[in-house]
Design a protein around this nucleic acid. Structure first.
Lengths: 204, 204
DNA sequence: ACCTGAACACCGTTCAAGT
DNA sequence: ACCTGAACACCGTTCAAGT
């Protein structure tokens, strides 16, 4: 099972990642100190340096795990639904994640000074999953044709922006004009669906 | 001119804000230390505490100034254009600001632990400006009818999300699928424009 | 190969004191 | 009313030393 790293080392590594994620959830970014991460993982305050080059690399590992979880969630979706409903569920899952774990969401898409290869790969994988879903919906005639990557960027940007603004209280939740991220994603998907190619002169 | 605060105090306050913004632009959030802010403003490292309760309040003042600048920019737009073009220019201005000053953009919409009344008011003013622009475009029949606040949230969420993703390199700039925030905003506005109320049976 | 404890430089914040 | 210098607690990181 273990190739080069021992089982104990991999356990410690995962414990450190889990500890960082927990601290993030409970107290935000500034609550994630290497000292508390170590304490929570049952090791000394600088044991993390045996598994990560520095604090940012530990945080990058947390972010990578989150993106991998997103890919997993999409892969586990019920494939009996129509492709456009799969797309809708994918985005609602994304929004649900952002709202349940706001600190992880902001960390994942936050500012990284040093590019982590693992994080970049996880992001590419997640983006690939979304593009495939968009392509399937296009093939089924449920979305307008055109570049799938650009369409995916449109949908993801909206969902992402709505989540980020909502977390900051910039979406004016109260009143009749209040729109949460789920509603806005539905609005856009409905808008796109209305522009789908008409197969047999069916009125839009 | 000065009501209760002296001119010197107001100058120092503005110098501190400007110094913080400069440090933010040059070295990112972690470059903004109270010590360097003071040094750049020509005062001691804890003079900021005479003008702001703590570091976060200084940063909130920076963010408020940025939002006020956005409102100013919209107010200065050429009113001879059609309303929907004003909307387009407003969003392009927003995107341009985010790309020129990424650290200010992320600070402004970042995580605030203590609600600053000034920042909240600035955000409300900026949102109000956008909603008014959307309403004007609706009245001119250039956007679909419906709740203007919700439509404004849709457009702002897209622009905001596209900027945030682009800053993190999550928008796959290269290749034919590459779409930058300006293109995505144009896509959405065109999509909405195509769904505008048809006045005299003009084909969409 | 992995971990520890001491140490260093740095930061936000407080406080007593000055004008 | 505004500012300063010293001090405190805390943090990321390094290093010598242990198994």
């Amino acid at each position: 099972m273990t190739t080069r790293t021992t089982r104990a080392a991999r356990d410690t590594r995962n414990l450190l990642i889990a500890a960082a994620a927990d601290l993030l959830d409970q107290g935000g970014p500034e609550a994630v100190t290497l000292r508390d991460v170590g304490k929570r993982a049952g090791v000394s305050h600088n044991a993390p340096y045996k598994h990560f080059a520095n604090k940012e690399e530990l945080l990058a590992a947390v972010a990578s795990r989150e993106l991998a979880g997103q890919v997993q969630a999409v892969a586990g979706l019920d494939r009996t639904h129509r492709p456009i409903e799969l797309l809708r569920q994918t985005m609602h899952g994304y929004i649900d994640w952002a709202q349940r774990y706001p600190a992880r969401f902001r960390l994942t898409f936050g500012a990284w000074k040093q590019e982590s290869g693992e994080l970049g790969a996880a992001a590419t994988a997640a983006r690939g999953k979304l593009i495939a879903t968009v392509k399937a919906a296009q093939k089924a005639g449920e979305l307008p044709s055109g570049n799938a990557e650009r369409l995916a960027s449109l949908i993801l940007s909206l969902a992402h922006g709505a989540c980020d603004l909502a977390l900051g209280g910039h979406l004016s939740k109260e009143g009749k004009g209040g729109a949460d991220p789920d509603m806005l994603v539905n609005d856009l998907i409905d808008l796109l669906h209305a522009r789908r190619p008409k197969k047999r002169g069916k009125s839009a």
